[in-house]
Design a protein around this nucleic acid. Structure first.
Lengths: 196, 196
DNA sequence: CGCGTGATTGAAACCCTTCAAGTTTAGTGG
DNA sequence: CCACTAAACTTGAAGGGTTTCAATCACGCG
């Protein structure tokens, strides 16, 4: 039961077994079926979600009804609309699941308690924020500088395991291209590599 | 002398005059002429730069030699490659100035001392990180969902003052389009608004 | 088996880039 | 203060990458 969440905290935050036990009372664990929402536009995001098992996605829907995926979150990842949580604003985004998912719901109380009981916790929290910034910045740079093929190659290099679990049209959405274009990019890549 | 930096800290971090005086010994202030570098690719970024006066830009150069602007930083803004500072990695990016600039160089020592002497400081630091994430996320969403015209309109709405100070070709770079395209977008916008 | 979803393919259209030329603007030195 | 030059901006025509729309194919599941 919740092996991933426990291991994650033990290895990343130097938490002890007993500290973990007391903090665990503060979280909620929920099962979310494939396609169900963790967050919808207009809601205030009150939790950080730790994905114990399964796969979630964080995305927006534009005025033409098109989805744009900001982030995928497989097991051992956090997913959250930080802007909504931290600034207490209604969210512009959606979070739902691509697979049946077990998620740990962490609220303000949990982070306060954890920061107080585990001295290293706030340091790790800063690590998460800095790491998040690093990834977002790299993504912006990629969107500015690379075309479809290069974006896709970087994606499968960075997330080889996810490539197999995520439908192609969602990867296309993450890359900022249409499913048809991604299909053609893959066809072209297959053609190039055939001669080896 | 450094009115902006002082006011910024006083209003945002609840620092006292005397605390400011002692912390001020830990910073360096430098004048950077237009076009000179604060950071170049391959260097380890050791400072956060507070722009006291002037205007800086944070950008990458791709394999074809094209520049891609990640961020502009006018007076009262911070600019820094957080990934390089926090993870102690060589930077992938450049920071230089668009105008003659006075910048405050803040290093690790400053942040440690400030966190210790000013209780509110680390809270404000988290605010900066969260705010940074919020902006990067919105930018990614815009790059995924909007075409040239909409990107430009959002830009001039968000940064009306910067629009006049920054050469058009740099704004184009920030938007992920060519200078020629931006010129045509502006022409088209002028045409549309002529009929009012 | 039939249905729905996802992936593929083709043709036309579109947005944007590229390249080249011309115009305007800004900065510098005589 | 004007003349000169470089940089920035504009404009046009051609081309490229991607989208759009439509049709077809492949697959899993009730």
């Amino acid at each position: 039961m919740l092996q991933n969440f426990k291991n994650y905290l033990l290895t990343h935050t130097q938490i002890t077994e007993s500290e973990y036990s007391s903090l665990f009372d503060l979280v909620e664990v929920k099962t979310i079926l494939k396609g169900e929402f963790l967050l919808q536009k207009g809601e205030h995001c009150k939790h950080s979600f730790f994905i114990e098992n399964g796969l979630a996605r964080f995305y927006s829907i534009d005025k033409d009804g098109k989805e744009h995926i900001i982030q995928f979150a497989p097991e051992n990842w956090f997913v959250v609309d930080r802007a909504s949580v931290f600034f207490n604003e209604p969210s512009e985004y959606y979070i739902d699941t691509i697979e049946d998912t077990t998620a740990v719901f962490l609220d303000e109380n949990f982070f306060c308690a954890a920061s107080e009981t585990v001295s290293f916790f706030s340091k790790y929290n800063e690590f998460l924020l800095q790491n998040h910034i690093k990834h977002l910045q790299n993504r912006i740079n990629l969107l500015l500088s690379a075309q479809a093929e290069e974006r896709y190659l970087k994606f499968i290099k960075l997330y080889p395991d996810l490539t197999l679990r995520i439908p192609q049209w969602m990867i296309a959405s993450y890359l900022g291209i249409t499913p048809e274009s991604l299909s053609r990019v893959r066809k072209e890549l297959a053609r190039k590599n055939f001669g080896r």
